[in-house]
Write a protein that binds this DNA or RNA. Structure first.
Length: 602
DNA sequence: GCCGTTTTCGGCCCGACTGTTTTCAGTCG
């Protein structure tokens, strides 16, 4: 049994420290990278390292082999790794603090800590700041006035907490990037502008924002970009390929610039993911080709054989040409995660991913019609939301206010409230005559109580068309019990949809555990649907579970959970989650025309 | 230290940028 509870982050940090020490010691770069890789891989694990260890599956983690697995086993058994302790002995604790400051890596951190005699981690940053202010750093070999100033501004950012990996929600990053892209496009020399990296792949959270542009005039592009009003500081500025800036909100933006004729190669290269590109490179090597951000060349070993025509770099205006050259279908960015997409593209078996245009309705909306709900009431009227849905060319939408609070109402009160809402919707439809080009459904979002009961009386169901059931309380219920609770809630005939199924809140809480095999199986057998919530800090069901659900043939529904009319536009984020989970139109029930949807929902 | 449709050895990404250099090292992605 574990002596101490190690989280994934603890273990990732430990391995990163090891790679730091090896870097300082000028050890093999490959060993350094190996620890780095293992660290990243463990940090991004879906499950807990402790569970994986208990199942004896450490070596199944990518980047973890026999060596590191043995060390981790020692760590989780005894609470420490003797070999690592020995390595750390020679390194001042302050080094591991300093290297978290922007612009300081392992070697500079070590040089600073030893030369300034700052050893303990406590107050290390304050001491470093004092050294910078008293111009002690510029006296150290390898540093100068400029780097002293850099370090000072790095320290200030660090002290403001900006270096902590506060990831943005997808929607925040998307807003910021769109604004920058609009600004960039106001310059006529900029022909194309797109996000790169995790934003282009539509991950649920985003670290840094990278943006690419194609232009024949890099100089004008760079001059234009650095005048963007929200830039606080230009970190670095190249001649024609890269500009790196910090905005006033502390976020770093990298702008990558390319000629139009090779824009495709660059877009591909910097969209990633890292794992996708590694796999793609290995796949290319087998064909004797070598990939880079500039295009495709014959690989080194192939070059020698055919020296005559080998040096030529093949460049690509767009990504389609790039992938086709490798004998692959173009792979949508959302799939580029190293999850079998290259093999699928080779066999022309990539899924035909669902698109925003396919969505024909939103079935999770909270209007401002008060039924004295248990949770927050919506802020927009039914009428406004209906009008917006019509603009979005939806065929149907469903209002699912929270059930009336149980503690504040008698059963009769609840029934009356449900009746009132049903009447209101009927009247609304009547008042619009036959000119409404959209079907309006009267739903309800119902709490599943800790005991698995739904929070309205049995005779209330006749007043609603369908129910979304979801967990809003007792989130720490253990997995097995929580699974029973959810299945019990879903057993009601009107309960068709499991709302925000993991309960996670990005950056706030993990959510509860469910036995997904049981839940998926239940849904397939009983005609129940699992929601993908487009709500920016939910995006729940998460992408990796969508992928499992699709394999299980579970039907999903993408909803916005809007509490205000403008939030209905968040649909695209839910769709991106579905796409990242390899979902096609057929997997998503709100792509169906109304008649077919009604057949399975009502 | 990891990894494997040309496997148990011999590969493993490297280019852009900056600052302190006088030809390069460190950091970053």
């Amino acid at each position: 049994m574990a002596v101490k509870l190690f989280t994934n982050k603890d273990v990732a940090d430990l391995l990163r420290r090891v790679s730091t020490v090896y870097t300082i010691n000028d050890d093999s770069t490959f060993r350094i990278q190996a620890y780095e890789r293992a660290s990243v891989s463990i940090e991004h694990l879906n499950g807990e390292i402790k569970d994986i260890w208990e199942e004896g599956k450490l070596e199944e983690i990518p980047g973890v082999g026999k060596g590191i697995a043995n060390y981790l086993d020692e760590l989780l058994r005894t609470g420490k790794v003797k070999h690592f302790e020995k390595l750390f002995k020679k390194i001042p604790e302050a080094v591991f603090i300093f290297e978290r400051i922007q612009g300081i890596g392992p070697k500079k951190a070590y040089s600073l800590a030893t030369n300034l005699k700052i050893t303990s981690g406590k107050d290390a940053v304050d001491k470093l700041k004092k050294a910078a202010k008293t111009e002690k750093i510029r006296e150290i070999e390898g540093f100068g006035e400029a780097s002293e100033i850099d370090i000072l501004s790095g320290i200030e950012a660090y002290l403001r907490g900006e270096t902590e990996e506060k990831r943005l929600l997808l929607f925040e990053a998307d807003m910021m990037a769109s604004e920058i892209i609009d600004y960039l496009k106001s310059n006529n020399d900029i022909l194309e502008a797109n996000p790169l990296g995790s934003l282009r792949r539509m991950l649920s959270t985003i670290g840094d924002i990278d943006i690419s542009v194609s232009t024949n005039n890099p100089k004008s592009t760079i001059d234009h970009f650095v005048k963007y009003p929200k830039i606080k500081q230009v970190l670095s500025k190249g001649e024609e390929t890269l500009v790196r800036v910090i905005l006033f909100n502390g976020k770093q933006i990298d702008l990558r610039i390319s000629k139009p004729e090779s824009y495709g190669s660059m877009l591909q290269y910097f969209t990633g993911s890292k794992q996708h590109n590694i796999n793609l490179r290995n796949y290319a090597i087998k064909k004797g080709l070598s990939l880079s951000e500039y295009g495709i060349t014959l690989a080194q070993n192939a070059k020698r054989k055919t020296q005559n025509d080998s040096e030529k770099l093949k460049i690509f205006r767009d990504e389609v040409g790039f992938y086709n050259e490798l004998g692959l279908q173009w792979i949508p960015p959302e799939l580029r995660e190293g999850g079998g997409e290259i093999a699928a593209a080779e066999n022309k078996q990539l899924p035909n991913l669902v698109e925003v245009m396919d969505i024909k309705g939103d079935l999770h909306l909270h209007s401002d019609f008060s039924i004295e709900p248990s949770h927050d009431l919506g802020m927009s009227s039914i009428d406004v939301m209906v009008k917006t849905a019509i603009e979005l060319k939806y065929e149907y939408l469903g209002f699912t206010e929270h059930n009336p609070s149980v503690s504040k109402h008698t059963k009769d009160n609840i029934i009356n409230l449900l009746k009132r809402k049903k009447d209101f919707i009927e009247q609304y439809k009547y008042s619009q005559g036959n000119k409404l080009p959209i079907k309006i459904l009267n739903g309800l979002e119902i709490d599943i109580s800790p005991k698995g009961q739904l929070a309205i009386p049995d005779n209330g169901y006749q007043y609603i068309d369908y129910a979304i059931v979801s967990i809003h309380s007792s989130l720490d219920t253990p997995k097995e019990e929580m699974t029973k609770r959810v299945l019990s809630g879903l057993s009601n005939t009107k309960a068709k949809i499991l709302g925000h199924p993991t309960g996670r809140l990005l950056g706030e809480r993990e959510g509860y555990q469910l036995d997904w095999d049981l839940v998926f199986d239940f849904c397939v057998k009983n005609n129940k649907f699992i929601e993908i919530s487009s709500w920016p800090n939910r995006l729940d069901l998460p992408d990796y579970l969508v992928k499992d659900a699709v394999k299980y043939n579970v039907k999903l529904i993408i909803n916005t959970d809007s509490h205000e009319v403008s939030q209905m536009l968040f649909m695209k984020y839910g769709v991106s989650v579905a796409r990242r989970g390899w979902a096609e139109r057929k997997n998503i029930i709100n792509t169906l025309p109304y008649k077919e949807l009604a057949g399975i929902l009502l």
